[in-house]
Amino acid sequence: MEESNNKIVISIEGLTKSFGDNTILDGITLHLNKEENLVVLGKSGSGKSVLIKCIVGLLQHDTGSIKVGSHEITDISEEELIKVRKKIGFLFQGAALYDSMTVRENLTFALLRLKEKFTTDQVNEMIEEALENVGLPDSIDKMPSELSGGMKKRIGLARTLVVKPDIILYDEPTTGLDPITSDEISHLINDTRDKFKNASIIITHDINCVKTVADRIVMIKDGKVYKEGSLEEFTSEQDPYIKSFFK
């Protein structure tokens, strides 16, 4: 038991979150292991994005507990939250690159705000390395408006990787992309995990992405965990709701 606990990097128990009278998350319990790609699956509006925003403290959950490493997110102090955020990278649905900054400035901003001071040479080296990792070293001086949707996602991932997080939260990484680019992004998620040994939660309803990246799947329905298991367990499931996703 002690050994399995050491493997857990995020532990969520009985999480609830409501917006007014609308209950989005209704007692979610799940965990994320080291170096694991956990896919959170569910239809649009099922609270998947709310879940990861609660993990990183962008939204305050109502009840339940979220533990990131040894840090309990509930009623966390600002200093502790900074420590947690240094461990977590977040790839937003639309990449959320800062429009007024070049790619270089986007990455520098993330690096210098989250990590200790670096020399200009060190910063440049780390940025170039992060862009190499996502296969876009030539985009360094481009503005986000000059990038395609897929390139934005890659740059968003580079901005996440530049701070070398232990955990990456992907919010619908392949949404709005063509099948080829979606596939490239899915493989990039795997490559990132293999290279940096990070754990990831991938929020998606793209089944091709699920099939490529999932080590384990948690399906959310009506704010609750509907099923948890491996890809094989999900694909062989006879439940009509689950089958409707994997048909």
């Binding site: 925003k53 962008l58 900074i82 955020r85 977040f90 937003f92 639309g94 959320a96 800062y98 429009d99």
Partner: peptide
């Protein structure tokens, strides 16, 4: 407002800003 809509403000918060 466009930064809010495109989650740039959230990204800023996550980047400890």
């Amino acid at each position: 407002s466009s930064m809010r809509v495109t989650e740039q403000i959230d990204a800023m918060e996550v980047s400890n800003t």
